[in-house]
Structures are given as structure tokens and as C-alpha cells.
Simulated scan of single mutants.
Amino acid sequence: MDFNFTDDQLAIKALAKDFVKEEIVPHARKYDEEEQFPEEMMKKLRECGLFNFAIPEQYGGPGIDKISHALIVEELARGCAGVTTSVEANSLSSYPILVGGDEELKFKYLNRLTTDGLYASFALTEPQAGSDVNGLSTTVKRVGQEYILNGEKCFITNASHANFFVVLAKQSDGVGSNPFIALVVDRDLEGVVIGKKEKKMGIRASDTSSVIFNDVRVPIRNRIGAEGKGFHIFMKALSHARPMVGAQSLGIARGAYEEALSYAKERKQFGKPIANFQSIQFMLADMVMNIEAARLLVHKAVYLLQEGRPSITNASFAKCFAADTAVKVATDAVQIFGGYGYIREYGVEKYYRDAKIMQIYEGTNQIQRVVIAKEILA
């Protein structure tokens, strides 16, 4: 692995950084306070080519490499993790189709996201089944050339705006250890109902709602891969997605660290900047050291993806360590700010609130440790 970025990678990183400075940072607080989906921001991101990063050129996507993808996500999350979550929902929804779908399915649905400028949602979590995927209660039953889909998914990003949902369900008459089916479910099918919008602690600029499927008739041609392969497809998709959660965590951590560093140089106590005190210096040193370590783990995981060697273990390393780092760095940033860190006027309280979800979604950090332990004990 070469630690030097290419000219193209540096250029796209600079593009994202400039966009964040000019378009996201000035409005991030407004979107957060109003818990408003950033529709205008999404349009501008599309116009700049900062969208649908996972989709290849033949389906209308930018066709960028995985390192570039991670660099963009880090920059966007530095500005607003809620906006980044909304953007990355399309990438997450693309992965099952890309890793398991046939060409007809890829062309039809991925072009909706790119050419048509629409949104999609990844629908896995349920009210009674999050980490325990085997406990899913959403079911499908094959009837002729259709599947009848029933169940409820919760905490679904972009659900209120999605044109289609990528859903994992269990065959109602399925037997054995692989009863799962992955489906693309169009929003306008009869029986698809969008539930209430959740009010969240952080990433408030993103839309999060439940989705209910009541006897939804899904054509067999909308199945992703073969029957019984749904679980494998979704897990493989997550091995692509989790390093990008790591990249998002990096952006949050870096933003919190930069705010704390600047404040520590300016804030004076006992007649000198608090950055002169060793206790603060050690906090800042630990912040930047762990951010760099997290970045190396993230970049190794995405490098392996780029090389066509996706690693479940390295994806979990990246997601878990970077998310833990984001929470620790944001917590220490608030501490360095003291009472001001608890006030909304200063940005570190938002980083603090946004960081926590990184340890939860796309597989809790406890589940990442389960995955890692399973691999090393195999």
C-alpha cells in the first residue's frame, strides 16, 4: 500500500473540503436544530459529483476508487455527520445490488440513484432484531411469480424519501440455516407504509423512519441473488459499508479535535493558554494519535476492497476502532471546552452527539468484536 495519494485523490479531497467549508459548515447547525432533511444540500452535492460514491460509471456513478470514497466521506463528516449519513444511505443501499444483483437489476435501480437523482434505503433492522439477524420476523412467501412480503423495519435512513428499499427477509416456509432472501422493493407498491419520523440525539439532518410491509407483492425479478443467499449478500454488503462508517467517524473525530486544539491555544486560565498545561497536551496528543491510527485501519480496509479482497475482519477493525475513537475524541473535546463545550453555540457538542451513533449503526461495536473474535478463534 502506497501512503501517498494520487493527484486525482488529492483533487477530489480538496473538492470535498471546499464544499464542506462553503456549503455545509454555514448551514449544519440549522439543519441540526430544525431536524430538517437537507434537500437543497443534496442537490448541490449531486451537481458537484459528490454523491453515489459506490456506483461504477456504467450505471451513472462517479466510478471513483475506494480510497477517494473514504477521503470524501471523512471531509463531509467533518462538516456534518447528518448530511453524510443521508448521502451514504445511497451507497449502503447500492452494495447488496452490486455484490449480488444481476445486470438487469443493477442497470434498473442504480440508474435511478444516479441518472434520476433518487434515494434508496437499506432495510435490515427490525424492532425485535438488530444485532441478531437470525431473529428477523419480516417474511416472504413465494406465490407464482411474486413474493408476498410482510413485516416492519425500523431506524431506516432516508425512508421518507426513498424510491425503493433493499430488504432482507426470511422465507415463511424456509428451512435450514439459509432461509433468507434479499429483495428490491419499490416504494409505490401497494402495502408499503412509511412510519413516523424518529427524533434523534444526533445526525438530525438525516431522516430516520420505520417502514411497514403489508402483503406487498414483489416481482421475483426483484430478488437479489438466489433464494437462500440473502444473508450472505447483506453481510458482504456490510463488509463494504463498515469501513466507510469508519471514515465518517474519522471526520467527526477530526472536527472535534481541530476545534479543541484551536480553543486550547486561545483559552487562558491562570494567566496562560490552557494548551500550556500538560494535562491538556496529553489529551490533545491522544486525540491526534488515535485519529491517525483509526485512519490507517480505515485506509487498509478500503485498500483491500479496492484490490478485490474485502476483509470482514479488517472492516470490523476499521469501523469499531474509528467509532470508539470518535466518541472518545468528541468527549475529550467537550471536556477541554469545559462549560462552553456544553453550549450549542460551540460546535463540539454536536460532534459529541453525532459520534455516538457510529458505535451503533451498521453493526454495534460489540458485534464488531464478536466478528473479530470469531475470525481469530476459527
Rank of each mutant, 00 (worst) to 15 (best):
L284R: 05
T208D: 01
G191A: 09
K236W: 01
R267F: 07
M283W: 11
I212S: 12
I280Q: 04
G255C: 01
I312H: 09
I312L: 11
G225S: 11
A241Q: 07
N290E: 14
A237R: 04
T208Y: 03
T313E: 14
L250V: 08
A285M: 14
M201D: 11
L261Y: 12
K300H: 06
T313G: 14
I291V: 08
R221T: 12
V245P: 01
A301I: 00
A285S: 14
V211S: 03
R204K: 15
L297A: 05
G230N: 10
A285N: 14
K265H: 12
M235T: 14
E258V: 00
P310W: 02
V245N: 10
S316N: 13
D186Y: 08
S210N: 10
R309A: 13
N222P: 13
S210T: 15
A226L: 14
H299G: 00
K229P: 02
L261I: 07
A253N: 04
A182D: 02
S262P: 04
G230Q: 10
I194D: 06
A301P: 04
M287P: 02
R217Y: 08
H232W: 11
M289K: 11
I212L: 15
P273K: 12
L296N: 11
K196L: 09
V211M: 02
A315R: 08
A285L: 15
D215M: 07
S279R: 15
K229S: 14
